[in-house]
């Protein structure tokens, strides 16, 4: 039986605002699953806390909705314990780059075979519009930071490269087909695949509706980290495409299993 994209929807109604970019990300995931003919019981979506982290409940697969910032460790533990599963971690920019920032760096470095999708809208939506690590310096719409954050935003793709990610891409919620294609490639990449998705929050950042005018496709995919770094540091943040793909050994590395008696070594 061939599964269609809509059969990967769970039927639970999303809590998202009308016009939220995450609806398109949900569609892109179900499209990618249809393209892969992913068995629902073999896929697990793992998330943290935030608007985007609600996504697993909306997909017909297994899911784990954990605590704020810890999607990546849950996903890594699951994948190491159950390597035959297709494990995808997902969440928002606050979840992934602020409270979960350390796990992001180490997930890039560790290279467990999982996909990490960050729906980046440069804002904390669920707590009603505070600045995140990717918010522009001068964004003064939050009562918590009335002068704007006055802190330079992270460049997530450049960070991922520096930390050792072996697959780095950016998509846009305004282009669910293009995003589905990226996710299709990301799932098949052996190792840690990082996908930043520009996914607008029309409620707290209505200006992001303009993103569709300024995103541009770049066909720059390379396996050379120096070329990728050069591109990513000159990037305006609105390029989309797969930027870097350089497979390296997936963790945990395979070792010859030596049978041993657990009780050996205790005797006097």
């Amino acid at each position: 039986m061939i599964l269609k994209a809509k059969q990967y929807k769970s039927g639970v109604k999303p809590i998202w605002c009308p016009g939220c970019g995450h609806y398109s990300v949900l569609n892109a995931i179900t499209k990618a699953f249809a393209a892969l003919q992913q068995a629902p019981e073999q896929a697990v979506l793992v998330s943290g806390i935030g608007c985007s982290s609600r996504l697993p409940a909306y997909v017909h697969s297994y899911g784990f909705h954990g605590v704020h910032g810890r999607a990546l460790p849950v996903a890594a533990g699951l994948k190491v314990a159950r390597p035959e599963l297709n494990v995808m971690a997902l969440g928002g920019d606050g979840d992934g780059f602020s409270i979960g920032g350390n796990h992001f760096l180490h997930a890039c470095r560790r290279n467990v075979d999982i996909v990490y999708v960050v729906m980046d809208n440069e804002v904390y939506g669920m707590t009603k519009g505070q600045a995140s690590p990717t918010t522009p310096e001068n964004w003064d719409h939050s009562k918590l930071t009335p002068h704007g954050p006055e802190v330079r935003p992270f460049q997530p793709c450049a960070l991922a490269l520096a930390a050792g990610a072996s697959f780095i891409a950016r998509g846009h919620s305004g282009d669910p087909n293009g995003l589905a294609q990226i996710l299709y490639e990301a799932v098949q990449h052996p190792g840690f695949a990082f996908v930043q998705v520009l996914s607008q929050c029309v409620t707290f950042c209505p200006e992001q509706a303009q993103w569709k005018e300024i995103v541009h496709t770049e066909d720059v995919c390379t396996s050379d980290p120096v070329a990728a770094a050069s591109f990513l540091h000159g990037d305006d943040g609105f390029a989309k495409g797969i930027f870097y793909r350089n497979p390296r050994p997936v963790w945990p590395l395979a070792h010859e299993r030596k049978e041993a008696d657990l009780r050996e070594g205790f005797r006097l």
Partner: peptide, 25 residues
């Protein structure tokens, strides 16, 4: 030797959440 894995995590937050991930599995 019994087919399991031990992961040295980046911190205790990761350690316990990895453990939960495996337990969920």
């Amino acid at each position: 030797s019994v087919g399991g894995h031990l992961v040295q995590a980046e911190d205790e937050l990761a350690a316990v959440n990895m453990t939960i991930g495996a337990g969920y599995g």
